[in-house]
Design a protein around this nucleic acid. Structure first.
Lengths: 196, 196
DNA sequence: TAATAAAGCTAAAGATTATTAGCTTTTCTT
DNA sequence: AAGAAAAGCTAATAATCTTTAGCTTTATTA
């Protein structure tokens, strides 16, 4: 892989574990397998690496939530909806890259306005818009009771986001957290889906 | 105020703004109005200040969620419930000390297991347990429909916690966020409260 | 009031940090 | 294959950061 990408990769790993200020350029270089001054052939400085990583986070966001395609077709039953939702959650929760971006953003969200905005987009807007569309579509098909799809999407996703964040900081509780998520989703369906 | 407490006060302010690694002992000392080496008359080192702050965070938690008294009496109507809940939220959102603890914890949650546990207690367990009891009591009075009070409490609080976190990083959006919270609470009441 | 303890100060050590300068090796292009 | 560009290295600078040593001032206590 190109060195520039390797640097970003290792920087993201280290930033997500120890934070930006807790990570030295020497550490990054060592993980990449080069010496610290060589980093400066690829980036102007440490902050330049940070900004490139924010670009990465934004690109990942666009890739994941920007297009409609990854939505797939709408679920046709409660079981399909629950399974699809759980699959997405487990993927998001476990995928190493996504996990690192999440931990990185949560720690650096106060550093500047851009990081704050990207964090909100990742943590709230993306998932919420996506589920607003899914629930809206399923309402039209009569699978959900008539209500404001945006409010319902928020009810569904808020708790999931919060529990995933907990799993990030207490991975030893992952099993119980996954169960909590499943319980929450089932309860959500009990309340808002029509009986079939 | 005793210097030791002043140090903790200013350290919390700085840590909540710039993070632990982003804050120098010299900065803390300057805010307190002493020179950096004088800090060491009160604390063994920088990490000792951090640990004392975690103690503070735990103490605040106990003070706020440990006793039953701050619950007050149970709301007797939907209006009372909404008003009480909004008051609590606005207080939590705006109180400077609580805000600082929240921002501090969110940034340092990955530093060690103790910080991770304290963050979960502040962010999840405290509010959830509190609202589980409130909703449980109101269910017995017939104000809420019969359901699992813990699940309902989680539905209610998760989104609030998430939106408060957003207000912490994007304070310029506070007005809209407050409105989102209110809309969420009203919807929650629409769905789960009995008609009176 | 005299003695003691606590809390402040200056100066400095010692470690770590990000970054630059200058040189060498590797890689690419023609 | 020759020349140029890219990417690596070593050595060093300059700033910063935490912490210690030793001294002075302030506050407490007997």
């Amino acid at each position: 892989m190109a060195t520039r990408d390797r640097i970003l990769e290792e920087a993201l790993s280290l930033f997500s574990e120890n934070g930006y200020d807790g990570t030295g350029v020497e550490q990054i270089a060592e993980k990449v397998g080069i010496k610290a001054p060589s980093l400066y052939k690829h980036f102007k400085g440490k902050e330049d690496i940070l900004n490139a990583l924010i670009d990465t986070a934004e690109a990942r966001y666009e890739e994941y939530f920007g297009s409609e395609q990854h939505l797939g077709r709408l679920p046709e039953s409660r079981e399909e909806f629950v399974r699809g939702t759980m699959d997405r959650i487990l993927f998001t929760m476990c995928d190493p890259m996504i996990r690192k971006i999440r931990k990185f953003l949560v720690q650096e969200q106060f550093r500047n306005d851009r990081l704050a905005a990207v964090t909100t987009r990742h943590q709230l807007e993306g998932v919420q818009k996506m589920y607003t569309r899914i629930i809206e579509g399923m309402m039209e098909k009569g699978l959900f009771i008539k209500d404001d799809p945006e409010l319902l999407a928020n009810e569904l996703t808020a708790q999931v986001v919060l529990l995933i964040a907990q799993a990030d900081r207490q991975p030893q509780l992952e099993r119980e957290i996954t169960q909590s998520i499943e319980r929450h989703i089932c309860h959500f369906c009990d309340v808002y889906m029509t009986i079939q």
